[in-house]
Design a protein around this nucleic acid. Structure first.
Lengths: 123, 123
DNA sequence: CGTCTATGTTGACATACATCGAACCAGTAC
DNA sequence: GTACTGGTTCGATGTATGTCAACATAGACG
């Protein structure tokens, strides 16, 4: 209880987009696992999205207003489109506060993907 | 000398496809970094490729013959196509030995991507 | 040599995706 | 109320991508 951070795998609170975790190198993924994990990788598989995600993830407080991160070389509708994609992939969450919309990183996601890529016991 | 495994970040031996590494959460990525990293994420952003990669990564000895991993529900040309993509992304290397072709995971890649996804100092 | 098996390549096709401008919605300030 | 600013949604468009069937190549074996 207290907080669930002891198990940084994946919280079920995430709308149902996320779960994934068997380390990539442990055993071959089945179709279902791959489908799920690929959704997240694909979301980060675009340079613009990766920059947006990094901008949010590295922003102080773990959240950022769209106005703070929309300087990635594409039009504002495109930024919005990519943020939506990241949200749909379960990597970001958004919240409107007054005039501005703030995005924050779903913390469990980083741990989950990191674990997925865990190298085979350091060889 | 001996072996370069002490620094699992990224070896320059990799043809030039790979480098990347500033943890995603450390500071906003610039266009160049994002372009590079996105190439790898995109390569894993397809369920079939993810399964192929996982199959190779989890195979004994860190390498696998195509014949061992081509059971992912798509035609053989498609498997070959995806393996090529993974190779172009710098995630896999291939070697022909007699009749069969063996693929193996570029070890530095797992460490690099894992580091890229390092959560912000455990909060 | 010819044949058979294991992979890779080519060409075609349908779907998905990134991008933009324009229109639209949410709040704030006047 | 109207006007303005921040953000999202819509529609269109060009490009990338996943897939397969058909063909090509590489080595093994006779």
């Amino acid at each position: 209880m207290s907080n669930a951070k002891v198990l940084p795998l994946l919280d079920p609170e995430v709308q149902g987009v996320v779960p994934c975790c068997p380390p990539l190198t442990e055993r071959p993924m089945n179709a279902e696992e791959a489908e799920r994990a690929a959704r997240m990788f694909k979301a980060l598989g675009d340079p613009v999205r990766l920059r947006l995600f990094s901008a949010v993830a590295s922003h102080e407080g773990g959240e950022a207003c769209v106005c703070d991160i929309s300087d990635v070389g594409v039009s504002q509708p495109t930024v919005s489109h990519h943020l939506k994609k990241l949200k749909e992939a379960g990597l970001l969450t958004s919240e409107r506060r007054g005039t501005w919309v703030y995005y924050r990183v779903e913390p469990s996601v980083l741990a989950a993907m990191g674990q997925l890529l865990t190298p085979p016991a350091a060889a």
